[in-house]
Nucleic acid binder design. Structure first.
Lengths: 349, 349
DNA sequence: GTTAGCACTCGAGCACAATGAGTGCTAACA
DNA sequence: TGTTAGCACTCATTGTGCTCGAGTGCTAAC
């Protein structure tokens, strides 16, 4: 459907998108004709532009302005015209120095990565840790806060720490907690949280698990702790870069955008989806987050270590973002983060 | 210095601040005179307003506009004129339901609290967990991620979980780690992190600690983990409420504001300061965060449990914020959060 | 198929006047 | 002496009409 563009049509569409990405203003026929000694007159360009508009790649805000790309226009541009340049050594270094600054929390590392993405791309960086359910269990610890309140700390294979407050019906002694902890750590190590849940459910069904009161309690406790799924942590950095973008000059729209960032749940959904695919994915405009934020595009990639996908990261910017710049940044960063969260498990075996 | 205001001056200042807080527009003499059958003519009001301006409580944006309060004006208003109303049962309930929604992470609880503050006040809510150094040590765990990388998990008395990646020189076996863990948990429990650091330093100095290699390693490890101070986690929620406030219509200023929110370090400093005092504190305009964000005021309170102060929370809004509404919200929330993070330690003894 | 020419459209920017809210001052009043 | 009415003045805001120019679409010539 979109291959019915001849050489000249492609060149002109590319020129318009390129220009519009840097200027943010409608591009006229004269500008295209002059640009890079493309030897055709403005009048000819106008004819082609008119065709492109009819095909849905361009739109004109009003009669006497130039043309701007439609979402479909960007889509074609990204899919068929874009030349992806490599990162310079300097850029790579900048990303690395951001992500490796000293002794960090895993959460901090992800947050710093978000900042790196933002500062290199000049748009907003977004990094999501995995949904808890999809992580691989490594270790569990219980901390008794009061008679009826326990703090449960999980550590995933990748080193992500998740904690939860739970209320219990009976008072556990430190000794009991220790035994429960040991039992669970032995039983569950290496399973995904999803499997852990299933295992707990099935063991509790079978009577054989019940002969030992402690074991039963252990299962009950961990079941309780896993009851509600904790949404993946999500870090958005550099959202302020949207302020100043001319297309978001209207306060109302800007407010919607920031509220969407604060709410996060929609974003989690979207990133969840992109987690399955590998490599860089690009969501343009309304194609991304169901009508919530207009005019925004998203470049994402999942990152993984030897155990599989850990999470997703990317950049959110206006539709009119510099894809050729952003795509390699996201790609490189995803690989780097995957490597940094390598657990060395491979060497252990 | 500020008591030299007669009854009428006070009434007029209060009227102006009240009006300005709701309207956001300069208040004229006529409006004040009409307001609540204050039986004086606009002309008289003008005289008084002129005096108030001379004293520094009011300012006029330009000749033919009304007056707006200066920072000093707000200060006086807050210190001497403000009547603080109690929260309605409904409001209390709303805060509680926000903070107690199900089984939460401690971090989530703090974050939800920020949202509650924001949604009730209609400004931005801010919640800070304590600086790590000022928390009380409860438990430490080591997780071996690879030969040279350990994940250290600390739990504080209040149930806050902090984790850190550290690099080590030698490979520890699970057995060794367990011994180290036990040793540290016994030795350090109940001390503040600050004291823990000192203890480690002093023990390592004394030769007597060195006869046991394991003990030495334990101290080294924990010393390493505590080397760099982790800044207190800070949650800012509802920053988007600033969008739409007329005084931040200019994009440049708005951008500065959001960048300040993203940076956070300045805010941490400020909240640190307010941590020492007890009760609700109010920072108005330039008095708060050294010139970074103009026109913003901050209402904060620290929250504590039986072990002392845990952290600080509050509301950030424009100078022109509804203090009478915000102050009781912040006050009540701080008490509530303190209670929710109660560890029941008192009953244990 | 391409291009030059031309009439037409429409937003941006500017000057100008009208409006009106609000002030400061002065003089009269209680 | 403190209060008030009256009045001239200031100045941001709003609306109007105007020009300017960028850009288009169409037609006719190449």
């Amino acid at each position: 459907m979109s291959i019915d563009l001849n050489e000249r049509g492609r060149a002109i569409l590319e020129a318009i998108v390129d220009d519009y990405i840097v200027s943010g203003e409608p591009v006229g026929s004269r500008a295209v004709s002059k640009r890079h000694n493309m030897n055709i007159s403005p009048a000819t360009v106008r004819n082609v532009m008119s065709d492109l508009e009819e095909m849905g790649f361009l739109a004109s805000p009003h009669t006497s302005a130039g043309r701007i790309p439609t979402e479909q226009g960007y889509r074609y541009y990204v899919d068929s015209l874009l030349q992806i340049r490599d990162l310079s050594a300097g850029e790579k270094l900048r990303i690395e120095s951001h992500c490796q600054s000293g002794k960090l929390t895993v959460e901090n590392l992800l947050q710093e990565t978000g900042k790196a993405l933002s500062s290199l791309s000049n748009y907003a960086g977004i990094v999501m840790a995995p949904r808890f359910t999809s992580t691989v269990f490594r270790q569990i610890e219980f901390v008794r806060l009061s008679e009826r309140r326990l703090l449960v700390v999980f550590v995933s294979q990748a080193g992500l720490v998740q904690n939860k407050l739970i209320e219990v019906d009976e008072d556990f002694s430190p000794r009991e907690l220790e035994q429960i902890t040991n039992y669970l750590n032995e039983t569950l190590s290496g399973l995904s949280i999803h499997d852990v849940k299933e295992k707990i459910a099935s063991e509790m069904q079978q009577e054989k698990a019940l002969y030992d009161k402690l074991m039963k309690q252990a299962l009950e406790l961990s079941g309780k702790a896993l009851e509600e799924d904790v949404a993946g942590q999500i870090f958005i950095e550099g959202a302020s870069s949207f302020l100043g973008q001319p297309e978001f000059a209207e306060v109302g729209q800007m407010k919607k955008l920031f509220e969407a960032f604060e709410q996060k749940s929609r974003l989690v959904e979207l990133l969840d989806k992109s987690q399955e695919a590998s490599g860089v994915q690009i969501f343009i405009g309304s194609a991304n987050t169901y009508n919530q934020i207009e005019g925004c595009s998203l470049v994402t990639s999942s990152y993984q270590n030897v155990h599989g996908t850990i999470g997703t990261l990317g950049v959110i910017g206006p539709n009119r973002m510099s894809y050729s710049k952003v795509i390699p940044i996201v790609d490189y960063t995803a690989r780097l983060v995957g490597r940094l969260l390598e657990t060395g498990q491979g060497k252990e075996k």
